[in-house]
Computed example of a mutant assay.
Amino acid sequence: MISAVIPAYNRARTIGRAIDSIVAQTRAVDEILIVDDASTDDLAAALEPYDETVRLVRHEKNRGASAARNTGIAEAKGDMIAFLDSDDVWTPEKIARQMDFMAEAEVSASCTNFKVIPPGEESGKPAWRPYDEILDLTDLVWGCYVSPGSTLLCRRSVLQKVSGYDVSFPRYEDWDLLVRMVRQEGKIGFLNEPLATVYLGTHLSPEAAEGGLERMEAKHWNELAGDGFGSRFQSALAFNLASVRRLEGDYGSMLLELARCYWLYPIGNWPLRVILRDRFRRR
Score class of each variant (00 low, 15 high):
Asn113Thr: 07
Asp166Pro: 12
Ala8Val: 04
Thr112Arg: 02
Ser110Asp: 08
Asp20Ala: 13
Ala209His: 10
Asp87Ser: 09
Asp36Thr: 06
Gln234Pro: 00
Asp227Glu: 14
Ile134Leu: 13
Gly249Glu: 06
Leu137Lys: 10
Ala68Met: 02
Ala82Ile: 13
Asp227Gln: 14
Glu133Cys: 01
Ala4Tyr: 00
Ala28Gln: 11
Thr26Val: 15
Trp128His: 15
Leu241Asn: 02
Thr71Phe: 00
Val141Glu: 06
Ala242Leu: 05
Leu177Cys: 12
Arg281Met: 12
Val182His: 06
Lys161Val: 00
Pro49His: 10
Ala45Asn: 07
Ile188Glu: 09
Val57Cys: 09
Trp175Gly: 05
Met99Asp: 02
Gly64Phe: 01
Ile32Tyr: 06
Arg277Asp: 11
Arg11Tyr: 10
Val116Gln: 15
Ser86Pro: 04
Asp174Ile: 03
Leu247Gln: 05
Ala65Asp: 05
Ala238His: 11
Gly226Trp: 11
Lys161Arg: 14
Trp270Ala: 02
Asp79Ala: 05
Gly249Cys: 07
Ala4Asn: 05
Glu185Trp: 03
Thr53Asp: 08
Val244Cys: 10
Thr138Gln: 10
Thr151Ala: 02
Ile95Ala: 02
Pro49Ala: 07
Asp136Asn: 12
Arg281Ala: 15
Cys144Arg: 08
Asp139Arg: 03
Arg17Phe: 15
Lys61Ile: 08
Gly64Thr: 09
Thr91Gly: 03
Ala46Glu: 06
Ala24Asn: 05
Ile267Pro: 00
Ser147Arg: 13
Glu214Leu: 14
Glu106Gly: 11
Gly164Glu: 04
Leu256Tyr: 01
Ser157Ile: 13
Leu204Gln: 11
Glu75Leu: 12
Tyr251Ser: 10
Pro126Val: 04
Ala46Asp: 04
Leu137Glu: 15
Met254Ser: 04
Pro126Leu: 10
Glu173Trp: 04
Ile32Asp: 02
Ala65Glu: 10
Lys187Ala: 13
Leu247Tyr: 07
Glu217Asp: 12
Ala44Leu: 06
Leu135Ser: 08
Asp100Ala: 15
Arg58Ile: 07
Phe190Met: 10
Ile6Trp: 00
Gly164Met: 11
Tyr50Leu: 05
Tyr9Gly: 03
Asn240Leu: 13
Phe229Asn: 02
Arg27Leu: 14
Ile95Trp: 09
Asp132Thr: 12
Glu193Gly: 09
Val167His: 01
Asp166Leu: 01
Glu248Asp: 01
Leu224Val: 01
Asn113Pro: 02
Val29Ile: 12
Met1Val: 11
Leu140Tyr: 13
Tyr251Leu: 13
Arg246Lys: 14
Thr14Arg: 04
Gly211Val: 14
Arg180Val: 08
Ile188Pro: 06
Arg13Thr: 12
His203Gln: 13
Leu43Trp: 09
Gln25Ile: 07
Lys187Gly: 01
Tyr172Lys: 01
Tyr251Asn: 14
Glu257Lys: 03
Gly164Pro: 13
Gln160Glu: 14
